[in-house]
Design a protein around this nucleic acid. Structure first.
Lengths: 202, 202, 202, 202
DNA sequence: TATGAATGAGCATTCATTCAT
DNA sequence: GATGAATGAATGCTCATTCAT
């Protein structure tokens, strides 16, 4: 008697995940209790444990979701037609950072980084995602170069590393400073890219 | 053993703080138990509570220490003689990020960010520190400009924001990728600064 | 074992309350540990906390129970047919004082008074109960008068206050002196009532 | 080198006892910590422990003081010249109940009764005091009789028991009802004494 | 002698998880 | 399947007492 469809089960799982993510945004992983998640998801303890067999598993699922889909989004950019500029890449990049869970996104992201520092499994997930991101960004750097929107100097790999590194800085400042906007951040970054004075150019 | 000197009391406090920081680097704030701290500091429960009246107070003291002294270090740079280059600033910057507690630094930093997302007091501390850092970096950007090592384009405030934002990205990648080095990161960053192609220059 | 009946839950609550009352009779509120209550009630810590969310709440529930139902009992007396004598009132009164929890009653009562001196909520409960008792006793005094079993002199309110005040004295002496009996106390009290010599009567 | 005089030591002891009594009036014996007493007495832990070798000993000393000197005072009354009335006895009685520590008296008294319920040594002290009081009051009842201010009926021992029992009732109501005064209580009591209707008199 | 830092067993309470219904 | 009462080890914190200085 299967009774419930797979779709129903997926929806339930998502419901728990979203409730838990809300809790984590407010309290962090280890101050969120299973009772909080159960209350927030409007399910029973048994039901929640039917979908996630431990708190650790739930944490990992949240981390997986929160690590986001920036890479997917940037890959699409790679295939887009026309002349690609660094500014365009950065815009897409920051937008991707926030899209996952709207406003809760920076709060959850920060919890995932902290969890990566203690759970090797989360660290592996995060590391994997960052490396994927780096390689997409490396490709984007090359694309900008061939489009003539970026100079020819420097190792694209290392430059991608720094570009990827701009993302956590943006997320963190966004968490601490509500006045920060995507626009000013992109402007600051594009201003920086190409700031070497004429004298070094020669 | 009453009537101990202030120096002795300071040393004890430091002893606890260092023990707790080690625990936090390994487990995060909320998986570190007071029993862990007590064991690691080789003191009794009562002694630890004589120096920090709650776990929250201890967490905040650790956060305060871990938020570090990057600004102080960069201020010294501001007063240093000679021609200041962006590369020099970045080197100093990354070194400052790691000095506070040696290798544990990135692990603890990440916990502090997570805590800032849930404890407004820690958020205020972090926010304050980031703003100080931004204003020092803004001054350094201006100094590089007047030294002729950086182009004249762009708003120094916004550029400083992005530069400050590079720090968390470095710390996080350092946590996830042990192969990352200061040198490659500085190279990537300096390559990026000044990558606008000649065509846009004109 | 979920989905239990309300009756089951009430029984459980009563089981805890009785176990705790036994502990309090032996050790007082603040020397009774929750571990004592848990052991005595044959439940787990979590179960006890499921019914009383803190020790304070448990203490107040015990106080509420121990403050007793003397007033209810005396009210019935008020409606009883026949000629009501002071002796009958006193008998009922002392019996009511001890019935609540049998032999533990004086020991618990004394703890409740002590708690009333430090917890305003318990003080309010006790004060409320004493005022109710006073008004019932005032009515009883009036009834005795109209039944011709008590003289017409004096303010019934003030007399009721003193009569109500006899109760703690009885409870306390009963605690300290195991030889004390209801009978001798009632005899002493009835002897006292009506002891003014003929000379003042005139 | 005795250094300090006996008088000085007595004063110190008294200082501790008074400080502790203030704490107990506010919090009860078992919620008062030695740290509270130490702070309130403006002495060091070591100093306090020099005068009372344990908290239990301090509690018993407080109990001893709080149990008061009602008996002494009433004994003086016994030797006073002139015609002694029940009203005079009651006045002295209630005054004695409150004199020991002024306003804190009822609060402390109630704690002592509670402690008597769990510490046999305090129970013995309280029992002893009550029995002394009973015998003095018995003597006073006899004196009133021979002075012709009290009727001849009844067992003076049992009547004294009830009279002594009026004291806790007064103290407790005084604690719970700030409007209560000595005067109204004495009036209520004297009204009660001699309330038997003429019909029983005959 | 007086001090007060230190001890550590003990306390109230929480919470991930289970399993009888 | 779904429920939620029950479990009990673990947690943050307290406090009577000691003793090195």
């Amino acid at each position: 008697m299967p009774k419930v469809s797979q779709a129903h089960k997926d929806a339930r799982r998502q419901q728990i995940l979203e409730a838990a993510t809300r809790c984590v945004a407010a309290q962090g992983f280890h101050r969120t209790t299973m009772a909080d998640v159960i209350r927030e998801s409007d399910l029973s303890a048994g039901a929640v444990y039917g979908y996630f067999k431990s708190k650790t598993e739930l944490i990992r699922a949240i981390a997986d979701g929160a690590l986001g889909t920036a890479a997917d989004r940037l890959e699409q950019l790679l295939e887009a037609p026309g002349r690609l500029t660094p500014a365009r890449v950065l815009e897409e990049f920051l937008a991707a950072a926030l899209e996952a869970y709207g406003d809760t996104s920076p709060r959850v992201a920060v919890q995932v980084w902290a969890e990566a520092a203690r759970d090797p499994e989360v660290a592996a997930m995060a590391s994997d995602r960052i490396h994927t991101l780096r390689s997409v960004v490396t490709a984007l750097v090359r694309r900008c170069r061939s489009d003539g929107t970026l100079g020819r100097r420097g190792d694209p790999e290392l430059m991608a590393q720094v570009l990827v590194g701009a993302l956590p800085g943006y997320v963190l400042q966004r968490l601490l400073d509500p006045e920060l906007t995507n626009e000013t951040y992109v402007r600051g970054a594009t201003d920086l890219i190409g700031s070497t004075p004429a004298v070094r150019r020669r």
